[in-house]
Amino acid sequence: MATDYNDILLRLCFHLKQFTSPDVTIIPETDLINELAIDSVKLLNLVMEIEDEFDISVPLNALADVQTVHDLAKLIHHIKSAK
């Protein structure tokens, strides 16, 4: 089910792989900026991919609280659940 957190996490990790080197292991606690080196521009592009993948709109304002992969998955889950 698309709104299941674990399913979202899995699909999110798949997308994040495209922005990182293949040898990096991504877990929920992984820090997007410090560990995956996803800078502000990459993050904005990632958000657009995520919006299409999950058919949602992610306001840029909501990203201020996103630090880890878990934070981002939680945000997507929250937006999906609210639809």
């Binding site: 904005l44 657009m48 919006e51 299409d52 058919d55 709109s57 306001p59 304002n61």
Partner: peptide, 24 residues
Amino acid sequence: RLSGAEIIRFRHNDVADMEKRLRR
């Protein structure tokens, strides 16, 4: 940012992408 409104971006000059976001 100053407005406090939700900010949503569409891909540069991509009207289909803009419409998709409005539809959502």
